[in-house]
Structures are given as structure tokens and as C-alpha cells.
Design a protein around this nucleic acid. Structure first.
Length: 424
RNA sequence: GGAGGGAUGGCCGAGCGGACGAAGGCGCCUGUCUUGAAAACAGGUAUAGGGCAACCUAUCGUGGGUUCGAAUCCCACUUCCUCCGCCA
């Protein structure tokens, strides 16, 4: 959510930001207009309330009965006027809020302007694409042949975009999750295990609602919403809190499954396990001051890169263009790993500085060390990493000519003695 | 699932129709004192919105209602605690 004052005072700046995101900016005029109507009504109704308050106090002190009755009658009438103005104000405020909640965040000044993900800029590439003396296979062949990945069983159980990991495949993913959480703890993050279903207001606070309702699973019986990412509960956990500057930055990490209806990508990436309705992810999250946000964003990118590096994967870092930038993001880096089997760079992490956008929705502030008034914090989030695509990259990069898969060095202690996954 | 009791400022806690944005305490900040600190004393210390400002409005879990006037009365909801039941 943007600050209404920013829109009121610098509408052109906000319009410009929307244009960079390829979004029609006329809504800003609408918002400015509603804001004016709102303030005029406030002026009117609050003046009337002030009058009612002071006269009501007088009534309490009055002795003369007839005079008292007359005042009460006139205040009753004033009360009716107040009620009707309050009703008008409420309607205008809800219209204003609805529009405001639909405005995306303003991109940072160094975010490249572009139309879509093709305009993302590659910042650096680390490692060489691995050379094979044979034709490397895609994971959707490797996995089923080894008996560790079963797409048909997934369809049998739940339908398209589901799969089953079994044996060493399931164990490999568990090892990745365990190892990543431990790595992030060493990097200075605190581990959390949050609910995987949350209330509607938590979904709103993190920016998923109202705009992205159709991509979320919703239990209508209990009114629970299934998290599409651990970012949601890690934002909600501090909702309404005032933090001390001394405790910032606050670094959090959590493993959750993520649930997405994928209505926006119907028909895309259907092959393999690249995009599913349910996937596991280890998330990193930071609360910090606006002054340190850029530095913390770099730190988080470095932490995610270290994860790829330790797994021995070839990866590259991209800066998202304004056309690809997600709704709430101020600035986002993507990390992609090379998958030699499907011959594709796979996005395993998306690391964003959300600025104050989420904090304003969730009302999360910090008290500055100098004792001045509380300010909204900056929030940052990033995957560290998403499981299915990391699994794809590990499987395809560590495959051998006979179709077996070597276990990356860092995961060996967690695989119970398995050093290579072979057909049973 | 049933019965009962709660939810008040950063924290604890009083108030139960009018001078209450809210006693008192703790914490924190400033000052006096002190070589410095502690103690003591004095003052200050919520958030949001509106207004150029003086200042005004709203907020005592949330949403409605009654009333000239609600932290206080009524209704609904959320949530926490205790006990019983049920499940593990």
C-alpha cells in the first residue's frame, strides 16, 4: 500500500511509476479526487462532532430543565446529520481504500524499465555450464527411470501438476530442506515454523489479497487461506507490532509448503516438476530500517548465492525489469540455476525489497534509537531456495551416463550413506 | 462440543453513563543534584486522521446498537484463561 500523502503531493511521480510497470495511471486522478472529497467531508463532520461534544458537556451541567430539553432536542437533530455524513464518509473511504490497495509499489530508481521478464538484466553469471560427454537427460526422464519421481501417482492422487517423490528422491528433498535451514541459521537467520494456513487479514497484510485471490486456495468452511509462500506468515507474525531499532535487522527463515492455484500460468510449464500446485520452499525474511534496506538486500542475495554455490550449481543473478516486478516489490533480484537436461535457466530464488509497502498494510513499525516517532519498517523476502527447481538442477547436473545421480558433497551427511542414487 | 471468567497506553493495573485519552505503579526521556553514575526530586512520555496554525476528531479486543453524551449499558463476533466432555 502506498502512502496517500505521496499520491496527494506527488501524483506525477506515482503515475510515472505505474507507466513504467505498463499500468494505466488514470486511477491516480480518481484517487486524488476521492481524497479531496474525503477531506472535505471530514472537515464538515468533525466540526459537527466537536459541537456535539461541547454541548453535551454543557447539558451535563445544566440545571434549567426547559433549556436542557431544548439543547437535547437540537443535539438529537445534529446527531442525525452526523450519522448521515459518517455514512457518506465511510463509503468514500472504502472506495478510496479499495483503489489504494490495488496500486502496486513504486520501483526503485535503478530498476531497469521493461515490458516483461525478457527485459530483466543479467548482473553476473557464476560458473560454467557443465560439460557432458553424453546427452544429459531432463529430470522427467531421469526421475521416473530411477524410480524416485512418479508423475502418474501424483495425477492419480490429486490431478495434473502434482507428483510423488519416493525413496531416495523424497530423502534428497528432505536433505535439501534440512541443510538449507541449517545454512541460513549459520548465516544469522532465526528459524520459524509457522501455520501453513492463515486468516484473510494476514493475506491482505502481505499483499496477496484482494488482488491475487484467484491464485490462492481458500477453505470456505473455516475461512482459512493456504499460504502461497512463507513470506505470508513471516510478514503476519509482526503485524501491528512496534519493534526497537536496536533489534533490527531481524532475520527469519522458515520452511513451508507453498500452495498456488496457478490460474495465471494455465498451460505453462506443465512438463516435469517445475511448476506445481504444491511445492516446498525454504524462505528468508528480513525486517530492517529504510536506511539499511539496500545493503540487506545485497546480503540476502549473497546468502542465496552461497546456497547455490555450496550445492555446486551454475547460477546467474538478474535484476528484474519494471515489467516483471511483482505487485508489492520495490526492487527484485532473481537467481537462476542452469539445468542441463531441460536446457533451461530455472528461477530458484526471487529476492525483493518491499520497502514500506507491506509494513504499511500490516502496520509494522520500529521505534528509532533516537526516540523519535515510530516509522514503518522495510521488509525483504527471498527464497533460499525453492525445492522443486533446486531438485531439478541437482538431478540434471549430477547425472552420470548410466542414468544414476551423484549426491552433492554437502548433502551426503544427510543421506544415510547414499552417495549415488541408482536404479534399485 | 458444554460451563464460567477475562481482553484498558511500551508493560502492569484502576475505572463500570457526563470534567476520562483515561488514576496509580513500572519502564523510558529531559532537568536539578553529583567528578561520573545510582538514589532522590521536578517535568515530560500513545496512535491515526483533519487543519497554515491555535486546535479539532477518532481510538479502552473488533463490528453494530441504545443515549444529548459510552472504556462504562445492550447485541454479535474474535481471542485468551479455567473446568468438563471428546480425540490423540
Amino acid at each position: 500500500m502506498l502512502d496517500i500523502k505521496l499520491i496527494r503531493e506527488q501524483p506525477e511521480l506515482v503515475k510515472d511509476a505505474l507507466k513504467k510497470r505498463q499500468i494505466d495511471s488514470v486511477i491516480i486522478d480518481d484517487i486524488v479526487q476521492l481524497d479531496e472529497e474525503r477531506r472535505a467531508l471530514i472537515l464538515d463532520v468533525e466540526g459537527k462532532k466537536a459541537e456535539r461534544n461541547s454541548v453535551s458537556k454543557e447539558i451535563g451541567r445544566m440545571q434549567d430543565k426547559t433549556e436542557r430539553e431544548a439543547k437535547i432536542a437540537s443535539m438529537r437533530e445534529l446527531g442525525d446529520q452526523i450519522n448521515s455524513l459518517d455514512e457518506q464518509l465511510k463509503q468514500i473511504e472504502s472506495r478510496l481504500f479499495e483503489r489504494l490497495a490495488g496500486i502496486p509499489n513504486i520501483p526503485d530508481s535503478d530498476v531497469p524499465v521493461g515490458v516483461d521478464d525478457k527485459d530483466n538484466v543479467v548482473i553476473r553469471t557464476i560458473g560454467e555450464k557443465k560439460h557432458f560427454d553424453f546427452e544429459p537427460k531432463p529430470h522427467w526422464e531421469l526421475g521416473p527411470e530411477l524410480g524416485i519421481l512418479d508423475f502418474e501417482a501424483g495425477v492419480k492422487l490429486a490431478g495434473t501438476r502434482f507428483y510423488v517423490l519416493e525413496g531416495a528422491g523424497a530423502r534428497l528433498q528432505r536433505a535439501l530442506i534440512f541443510w538449507m535451514l541449517d545454512l541460513h541459521i549459520r548465516q544469522g537467520y532465526k528459524e520459524f515454523y509457522p501455520p501453513w494456513m492463515v486468516r484473510e487479514e494476514i493475506m491482505f497484510a502481505s499483499g496477496q489479497l484482494p488482488k491475487f485471490a484467484e491464485n490462492l486456495y481458500h477453505d470456505y468452511q473455516e475461512d482459512f487461506w493456504w499460504v502461497p509462500t512463507a513470506e505470508v506468515p513471516l510478514t503476519g507474525i509482526m503485524m501491528g507490532e512496534v519493534l526497537d531499532e536496536a533489534e533490527l535487522p531481524l532475520n527469519l527463515t522458515a520452511y513451508t509448503a507453498c500452495f498456488r492455484r496457478e490460474k495465471m500460468s494455465a498451460g505453462r510449464d506443465v512438463r516435469g516438476m517445475k511448476r506445481g500446485h504444491q511445492f516446498d520452499k525454504v524462505e528468508m525474511y528480513k525486517y530492517c530500517t529504510p536506511e539499511t534496506a539496500n545493503e540487506e538486500l545485497d546480503n540476502m542475495v549473497a546468502d542465496a548465492c552461497a546456497t547455490c554455490e555450496a550445492l555446486g550449481l551454475t547460477y546467474r543473478v538478474l535484476l528484474q525489469s519494471t515489467g516483471d516486478l511483482s505487485f508489492g516489490s520495490h526492487k527484485t533480484y532473481d537467481i537462476e540455476v542452469w539445468a542441463p537436461g531441460c536446457q533451461e535457466w530455472l528461477e530458484v530464488s526471487s529476492i525483493s525489497n518491499i520497502g514500506q509497502f507491506q509494513a504499511r498494510r500490516a502496520n509494522i513499525k520500529y521505534r528509532p534509537a533516537d526516540g523519535s516517532a515510530p516509522q514503518f519498517v522495510n521488509t525483504l523476502n527471498g527464497s533460499g531456495l525453492g525445492m522443486p527447481r533446486t531438485m531439478i538442477a541437482v538431478m540434471e547436473n549430477y547425472q552420470q551416463e548410466d542414468g544414476s545421480i551423484l549426491i552433492p558433497e554437502v548433502l551426503k551427511p544427510l543421506m544415510g550413506g547414499i552417495e549415488v542414487i541408482q536404479k534399485e
